[in-house]
Amino acid sequence: MADILVYSEKADAALELVAKGREWAAELGLGLSAACLGAGAAEAASALAAHGADRIFVSDAAFDGLPADTVAAALAAAAAEAGATVVLIASTRRGKELGGRVAQKLGAGCVSDVNALTLEHGELVADRYAYGGATVAREVITTAVKVFAVMPKTFAVGDPVAGAGAVVPLPAPAASAVRVVGRRAKEGEAVDLTAAPRIVGVGRGFAARDDLRLGTELADALHAELACTKSLADFEWLPESRILGLSGAKTKPDLYLAVGVSGQIQHTVGVSSARLIAAVNTDKEAPIFALADYGIVGDLYAVVPALVAKLQSL
């Protein structure tokens, strides 16, 4: 029997994929398998079984750091065992790098960063951004085995189901030459930009880190959340959790006010669904104005203090 095979190193993301995989497996007459690898694999396996996986391939071998080469080898072994025709992986950074490697092993086509995956006339159609976010490509994989790396939270976790999946032990693959030397948590507070009704975005128009104070004051005056371009996160001026765009948050606020932001496509894809877009930029040719409802061509160092004063006087 052919199967849909689900894997993620993140327990929640695996459950999301299992929920949707179960639905499609029923519709397509396939079985549903999952794989759990590394420390804690046995526990993760029972959660997946409780959510409807028919078979769970488990290896609690030392997958230290989950190196892409060994994880891909283990997953390919599970896919062969299950006769998997569809492999669903969560498109985390680990999942994305794994996707290419395992697809290559399986002779499979792969779509990564999938933000919608739908079953249409018996075919899985994957949506992802193309041209830096300028367009949305809808793609169908034509190889016998299909690998999709799907963004976490694309699907909801389902309810537990009756019946228990079978646990199938997986032999440990050859060790990777890659060794984990150390690990540390990323700095930066968690913010949910997608929940903010108003967002002020700051970019490289700010000449120094300290000047971001102006951005914060403006955000406060607007009762808005502060966000930024990738450039400022690269400088470590603001945490990655505040990036808007292709590699950050995709939001739909009532108001997005971009200050000192050029508005390149990889950024604006994160705000193009805003009800209103406004911008402050010295360059009247800046691409952000092509997307803006309201704009001020001017120097943020003069405009922002005046804006703050005006907003506070309301």
């Binding site: 490697r101 697809a103 290559q104 193309a130």
Partner: peptide, 22 residues
């Protein structure tokens, strides 16, 4: 343009080399 992040991993697999992403 594509930002698929697949090509590096696929080449590493074809060469049988270890890979370090990101």
């Amino acid at each position: 343009d594509n930002y698929s992040g697949q090509v590096g991993a696929r080449v590493a697999e074809l060469l049988g080399w270890p890979q370090i992403g990101y």
